[in-house]
């Protein structure tokens, strides 16, 4: 389980996902949902790595060994959210029952000359955020997305809604370009979104406690928020089965101060606070955990819990915003 998530092969799963999305696109959600069951079985038997990740994670979350049924349920939940992406990205929201919680925490902070940094994670569905965004067409949205990570799937999703491409800040570009683009987005008053729970290899991380064990989290999202003096709001879109989603917003900081002298200590406290909120939502519904890699493996990250590793001019912690590597 020492592979980093960016090194997982795309594998035969890509065809299954393509098939699922294509069927969803042409025959509708009902038909596509029926084939989620064979797809779940396929992944359960053909992807031993992800299967093991699921067993280990569910055991950690529930405090007792997980059964095959639970692991299949986990895979099924994940496949459901992948399928729903087709409909969420093409703005077909009517079929979904999305309950919003704390939307005001977000909207009250957006100003025309200064946007908000919205931090998502690989739990549940981040695309369900589009439902909230559709209610405020006046607010610009910018999404950090690594288009090189899963080019085939990115291509397919862009084909579904070409407009999305224009809102993407490509995380495969040089680090300086990405951070400058983030600065421009915030100054344009955009809702600027990135995922804050995954670090790439050689990226600056800090190790904090997460669900009872140390885990490495990227520091860049918080440093960027601090440098740009942008409010940071957290967003969690939990999938509840059927057509139901719960979309939670909560304010994280209005002006995060990270003075250079105390940065290491302060950053650790800030990231620990983020990890605690993430843990809260993960425990609320563990089947929404979609980090299909060994999240607690510190190899390749800083082993020294006191240090913030700071590699130079590397890509900041702008994880793949929409595409799951292991399956896609």
């Amino acid at each position: 389980m020492n592979e980093h998530w960016t090194e997982r092969p795309e594998g035969g799963g890509r065809f299954a996902i393509w098939l699922l999305l294509t069927i969803g696109l042409h025959f509708g959600r009902g038909v596509a949902r029926a084939i989620l069951y064979p797809i779940t079985l396929y992944f359960y038997f053909r992807r031993p790595f992800e299967r093991r990740v699921s067993y280990e994670f569910l055991q950690r979350a529930f405090g007792r060994p997980a059964g095959a049924w639970q692991v299949m349920r986990h895979i099924h939940r994940f496949a459901s959210t992948i399928l729903d992406r087709v409909f969420l990205l093409s703005d077909r929201f009517a079929r979904f029952d999305v309950r919003m919680h704390g939307l005001d925490e977000l909207t009250s902070r957006i100003r025309p000359e200064r946007g908000v940094l919205l931090l998502g994670s690989h739990i549940g569905s981040f695309e369900v955020l589009r439902v909230a965004a559709s209610e405020r067409p006046d607010v610009k949205v910018r999404v950090v997305l690594d288009t090189q990570q899963t080019p085939a799937l990115t291509e397919l999703l862009h084909a579904i809604n070409p407009e999305i491409r224009r809102n993407v800040i490509d995380a495969s570009r040089a680090g300086t370009d990405i951070v400058l683009a983030l600065g421009e987005a915030i100054r344009e008053g955009a809702l600027t979104t990135l995922l804050a729970d995954r670090a790439r290899p050689h990226e600056a991380t800090v190790v904090v406690d997460f669900m009872g064990a140390p885990a490495a989290f990227p520091v860049a999202p918080f440093l960027i928020g601090s440098v740009l003096k942008a409010p940071i709001v957290l967003c969690f879109g939990l999938y509840r089965g059927g057509n139901r989603y719960d979309l939670y917003f909560e304010s994280f900081s209005d002006e995060l101060a990270l003075p250079r002298r105390e940065r290491t200590t302060e950053l650790r406290a800030v990231v620990q606070r983020y990890a605690a909120r993430l843990e809260y939502y993960v425990r609320e519904d563990p089947y929404n955990w979609f980090n299909w890699h060994d999240f607690w493996n510190l190899e390749g990250f800083t082993g020294d819990a006191a240090a913030v590793r700071k590699p130079a001019l590397d890509k900041p912690a702008l994880a793949d915003a929409s595409v799951f590597r292991g399956v896609a």
Binding site: A174, G175, T176, I178, V179, L180, L182, G183, A204, A220, L223, I224, V227, L228, K310, P311, A312, L313, D314, K315, P316
Partner: peptide, 16 residues
């Protein structure tokens, strides 16, 4: 950036 000064891309943003 990326040299002896120990500066990274986020420092580049701050400088920008």
């Amino acid at each position: 950036f990326g040299g002896d000064l120990g500066l990274d891309s986020i420092d580049a943003l701050e400088l920008a």
